[in-house]
Design a protein around this nucleic acid. Structure first.
Length: 708
DNA sequence: ACGGTTGCAACA
DNA sequence: TTGTTGCAA
């Protein structure tokens, strides 16, 4: 559960960009004749006309909804255009949508720290851009404001749909006596409108956006006026907005937690939450969730926009509902092969385009058991070190499956496992690759390890190698991943076209994780050492990127349990005070903060997410890594060739160049602050994250075990 | 057992 | 750490 963090304040300008019925737009760009027509994207045409996964706004007017089958959609909207998701290897192939999403990100990432929230959603932290605009080209000084900006919806403005709504918006944007926060928001609105127009121009996609002071509010706002519109949330409108906002529509509250709030606490709107003390919410839902709830009721959400443009994992899966359930090892193997082929393809693309490798392969499955007492037992997921190469992945996946199956069927002794089995059926299969880290590349990396024999990759769309190094600096003193590599160096062969694969083979070993060479077909009866691949596991954990940093280096407190964070605070009280004072200097005087922050940007980027937004010296002590100077997103960002949809869009990983955190803030200094802001600051300083000790006797037990 | 597929994060 | 669960789109 997300938790408010102290290093962020509501002086930020955050936008959430949400593509409008994205899959439909992708298909309409491919098939221009579909534009303007009621259209839906479906997959698997066989059963009741396929399942709708995206519906155009024209079709929605007819009552067509996602979760309808194609047949139903035809009933309510006979003229609807149904487009099938591309199929490859017998399964849905979403690559076209992934690539289209990357195109969008590559446009949006130009203006600020950018987080890929999903295939069609993005968060942007526009604080710096908005501050710059306010300083250099404040809205009140602009005589011409884009039409697209004037079409913004500003929550709390009267006359929202009145005749001169645009004039109202213009007045709001240009108010010279506006609150500082509102002025920044106005700048944000102008920037976002510009970005959305740029997205449209370069990708032909429309999107909607919310502009607010934090992620939660931006996300809420982006959904309020769709399609192709943007909504601004001034601070003064927050309470009114949340007061009547349905709790179930809040992100994270659409599921069981939201239902529990409704039925257990009678909370139906976010405003209803205000009645409950933080303590009460904590007792019922745990410390972290309780605090989070208390905060969101007040419109507080300190979650950072993570500078991450690339997915953290890749997966490929397929369901086999009902009668299609897989009943033989052979059919499972067939589908695993298909899934692994796709996964392998995508891993290679990621390697080519982003120079990243995945370290863990995981298999998920769902199964049913016929007539067994514990037939509801779940098929366990299994993972192992990921070895590159399609057939290796296929072998490993099958072994993982068989390990899971043995566990699943337990000691139910079905001696005969012939071609057909009558005890189990597989209803879904999925393989995924995770723990994806940048490979060492460029001047300090592969070339070094390969003695300069690695050919430079002309096909790479990565703008500069140092992008990777920003993300993962090499260990100053022989990182474990290096040693893991070195131990295999003697096995390498350096063929020009294949050095990459040799590197990967070297990295991940040449034994399959079960340690036996006998292949599929006999796995069921064979006890393998699949679940204890000692050597492989060691290499895998050693390859963890975080371990490449010296132990004493400051980490992002995000990933640190709260109590540890406090311990750190006490050791650095002086620095903390320094930070917060600068913070408030910035808060009241944006003109001075700008240079400081830019200075921090340049430095902070060197240290790869380590360091502080406000202390420009805190990272100098840990900056052991030599890295290039130019690190801003604008500079490393690649042009995508102006909307050629066929080429897989590359998205640079500009992550850490925009990611800065406060290291520590000493809570005691809050007392020295002006009273009117003390409460707010205390909210930021609230528990980052604590070990989730559930207070006994509360209904939390019931909540987490609803059926027991 | 038909909302499928994909991905993220928290928790035990 | 790994596996599980929940959530979202």
């Amino acid at each position: 559960m997300p938790v408010a963090t102290p290093e962020t304040s509501d002086a930020r300008i955050i936008t959430h960009v949400d593509m409008d019925c994205f899959y439909v737009q992708v298909e309409q760009r491919k098939q221009q004749n579909l534009r303007g027509l009621p259209t839906a994207v479906i997959q698997y045409n066989s059963y009741k006309g396929g399942a709708l996964i995206a519906v155009s706004y024209e079709a929605r007017k007819f009552g067509v909804k996602r979760s309808m089958r194609g047949d139903e959609a035809k009933e309510v909207c006979p003229q609807i255009q149904l487009v099938q998701v591309p199929v490859a290897r017998g399964k849905a192939d979403l690559n076209a949508y992934r690539n289209a999403g990357s195109e969008v990100i590559s446009v949006l990432a130009r203006k600020g720290r950018c987080e890929r929230a999903s295939i069609d959603e993005v968060y942007l932290d526009l604080t710096d851009a908005a501050e710059t605009m306010l300083k250099e080209a404040a809205p009140e000084n602009l005589d011409d404001i884009e039409e697209e900006v004037l079409k913004s919806h500003v929550l709390g403005l009267h006359n929202e749909d009145g005749t001169d709504a645009k004039e109202e918006v213009r007045k709001w944007l240009c108010r010279s006596d506006a609150d500082y926060h509102d002025k920044l928001l106005a700048c944000g609105a102008i920037i976002v409108a510009e970005l959305r127009m740029q997205v449209l121009k370069e990708t032909e996609f429309t999107c909607s956006a919310g502009i607010a002071h934090n992620k939660m509010l931006a996300k809420l706002a982006s959904a309020m006026n769709k399609p192709a519109q943007q909504t601004v949330v001034p601070r003064s409108s927050v309470n009114g907005l949340l007061e009547s906002f349905p709790i179930k529509k809040m992100k994270q509250l659409g599921g069981k937690l939201g239902s529990s709030l409704q039925t257990d606490l009678g909370v139906n709107t976010v405003g209803d939450l205000l009645k409950f003390s933080e303590d009460k919410l904590q007792r019922r839902y745990g410390i972290n969730t309780g605090t989070w709830l208390w905060n969101i009721a007040r419109g507080i959400s300190g979650e950072e926009v993570e500078g991450r443009l690339l997915p953290k994992s890749h997966g490929s899966g397929k369901t086999f509902p009902g009668p299609q359930a897989l009943k033989t090892i052979a059919s499972v193997q067939h589908w695993l092969n298909q899934l692994c082929e796709e996964l392998s393809d995508r891993l290679h693309s990621d390697l080519d385009q982003n120079k990243r490798i995945a370290h863990t392969l995981t298999l998920h499955a769902r199964a049913y058991k016929t007539g067994d007492s514990d037939s509801h037992k779940k098929f366990p997921s299994k993972s192992c070190p990921l070895r590159y190469g399609t057939t290796k992945i296929q072998e490993d996946a099958l072994n993982l499956f068989q390990a899971g199956l043995r566990e699943y069927i337990g000691f139910c002794n079905n001696k005969i496992q012939g071609t057909q089995n009558n005890s189990w059926g597989i209803t879904s299969l999925a393989v995924s690759a995770s723990k994806i880290v940048p490979i060492p590349s460029g001047t300090h990396s592969i070339v070094k390890y390969f003695g300069g024999q690695l050919p430079s990759r002309s096909s790479s769309k990565l703008p500069r190698d140092n992008v990777i190094e920003e993300a993962t600096p090499l260990s100053p003193s022989g990182s474990e991943s290096c040693s893991g590599l070195n131990s295999y160096e003697s096995q390498l062969e350096y063929s020009e076209e294949d050095a990459k694969m040799k590197y990967l083979k070297a990295s991940f070993g040449q034994q399959d994780p079960s340690g036996n060479s006998s292949r599929q077909g006999d796995g069921l009866t064979e006890e393998s050492s699949l679940l204890s691949p000692q050597g492989n596991e060691n290499r895998m954990t050693q390859g963890e990127p975080r371990q490449e940093f010296p132990e004493e280096e400051p980490r992002r407190i995000h990933s640190m349990p709260r109590l540890k964070a406090i311990e750190k605070k006490n050791t650095a009280k002086e620095k903390g005070s320094c930070s917060i004072l600068k913070l408030f200097k910035n808060y009241h005087d944006p003109s001075t903060s700008l240079e400081q922050k830019h200075a921090a940007n340049a430095e902070g980027a060197k240290t790869s997410s380590i360091g502080s937004e406000f202390t420009s010296n805190s990272y100098s002590t840990c900056n052991q890594v030599e890295l290039p100077k130019e690190t801003h997103c604008e500079e490393i960002e690649t042009s995508n060739g102006g909307g050629s949809s066929s080429s897989a869009a590359h998205v640079p990983q500009g992550r850490q160049s925009w990611s800065y955190k406060i290291d520590e803030i000493d809570p005691s200094i809050v007392d020295e602050l002006p009273p009117e802001i003390q409460q707010e600051v205390r909210a930021w300083l609230r528990p980052l994250k604590r070990p989730n000790v559930v207070k006994r006797g509360s209904s939390i037990t019931h909540y987490f075990h609803p059926n027991k």
